[in-house]
Lab assay of single mutants.
Amino acid sequence: CAFTHRPCSHPRLEGQEFCIKHILEDKNAPFKQCSYISTKNGKRCPNAAPKPEKKDGVSFCAEH
Score class of each variant (00 low, 15 high):
K21R: 13
C45K: 01
Q16T: 07
P11I: 04
R6P: 13
R12M: 02
S35M: 13
L13K: 04
T4M: 00
C61D: 02
A49G: 12
S9T: 06
A29P: 05
D26W: 03
A48R: 07
N47I: 10
V58E: 13
I20Q: 11
E25P: 03
D26N: 11
K51G: 14
Q33R: 11
Y36C: 06
K32T: 06
E17L: 09
C61F: 01
E63F: 10
H5N: 05
C8G: 01
N41A: 13
C34S: 03
C61W: 01
F18W: 03
H10E: 14
H22S: 01
H10S: 14
N47S: 14
E25K: 04
T39C: 05
C1A: 03
P11T: 06
D26F: 04
K51F: 05
K21C: 09
K43P: 12
D26E: 07
P7Y: 07
K43C: 08
L13H: 05
P46R: 14
Q33H: 02
K21S: 09
C8R: 00
N28I: 05
R44T: 14
H22V: 00
H64L: 01
V58G: 08
L13Q: 06
R12F: 00
A62N: 10
I23G: 04
E17C: 09
I23K: 07
S38V: 14
K27Y: 05
I23V: 09
K32P: 05
R6M: 11
G57C: 03
N41F: 11
L13A: 06
I23R: 04
D56M: 02
A49W: 03
S35N: 09
P30K: 07
V58F: 12
D26R: 06
A29H: 05
A62T: 12
R44A: 13
T39G: 12
C1L: 00
R6T: 11
Y36W: 09
S9R: 06
N28T: 14
G15I: 00
A2I: 05
K32N: 12
A62D: 11
A2E: 01
S9K: 03
N47V: 12
S38T: 10
R12C: 11
P30D: 07
K32S: 11
V58R: 11
K27M: 04
I37G: 14
T4S: 06
P7V: 10
A49I: 12
R44I: 14
G15E: 05
H22A: 00
E14A: 10
N47L: 13
S59W: 15
D26P: 04
K43T: 14
K32R: 14
P46V: 12
C1H: 01
F31E: 08
E17S: 10
G42R: 14
P50Y: 04
S59C: 11
C61I: 02
K40G: 05
F18H: 02
P50M: 05
I20W: 05
H64Y: 00
A62F: 10
I20P: 06
H10P: 00
H22I: 00
P11L: 06
E17T: 13
F3I: 15
P46K: 15
P30A: 05
P30W: 01
Y36A: 11
S9G: 08
P52I: 08
